[in-house]
Write a protein that binds this DNA or RNA. Sequence first.
DNA 1: ACCGGAGCCTGTTAGC
DNA 2: TGCTAACAGGCTCCGG
Length: 280
Amino acid sequence: MPELPEVEWVARGLRPIVTGRTITEVECIWPGHIDRPDVAELCARLTGRTITGVQRRGKYLVLTLDSGEFLLIHLRMSGNLMLSNPADPRDKHVHTVFHLAASPAGEPPIELRFQDQRKFGRVYLVHDPQEVLYKLGPEPLDDDFTVEVLRQRLHGRKRLLKPLLLDQTIVAGVGNIYADEALWDARLHPLRRTDTLTDDEITRLHAAIRRALQRGIEHGGSSISIYIRPDGSQGAMQNEFNVYNQTGRPCPRCSTPIEKMFVAGRGTHICPVCQKREDK
DNA sequence: ACCGGAGCCTGTTAGC
DNA sequence: TGCTAACAGGCTCCGG
């Protein structure tokens, strides 16, 4: 599911509710999600800990704990985190439940439920987040992600643009939706190679990556398939796509029907007129 | 260095 | 209507 904008909204949804609450119990219904440490140790080390903050790094959620440890969660394709009243029935795909005590302000206890249809999501409890995050490239929306930074990261490489954008070590947080949206915005073909890009094209690509992700955040993320925010509300970005999932519909720039192709095994949507294979 | 495919899983949908 | 194959927002490992 979630790419950077969706994970950002999960973090924003969780932050005011879970910060300051203590984990009273961890219920592991399907332990396959737990990457490290093992399930028993994870439950033991989390129980009694207080959540001190909620951050995002790329597509990872980072919960900071009063023990100095970090609870990292990656939602992968179909994972989701929901805040629920303990009395509410559980979805059948809920695999781990974090029971949270009443808040310091007196809000009643709540459950943080990790649900995941396809079971690709992962949970890590670590002393140092870099243990998991060390490979990630820069945060694309940070001020220090400049055109020059992108240029340097492409220097000497010969890669196809689509797989490049999906590579989290180049830039963190872009997935299939926002890669297609960014390439359309930059008027670049997904099969263009990085070593053929002009300075102007790199500048366009840099701006387009940031614009696509920023738009995603501004519209509350994309709620397609099963993704919704922790409070059950939906994003609206799915109504704003220019090319993603728009096969056959007119390009918003030139009205040419959007085409779908496959690149690196991923569905890829382009405007065949705006995104010429070898334009400048 | 980089690409593409397989594998990890289940649910939904398109097609016959 | 019913069955089957293809596809789905991610990532890692491996062979070429």
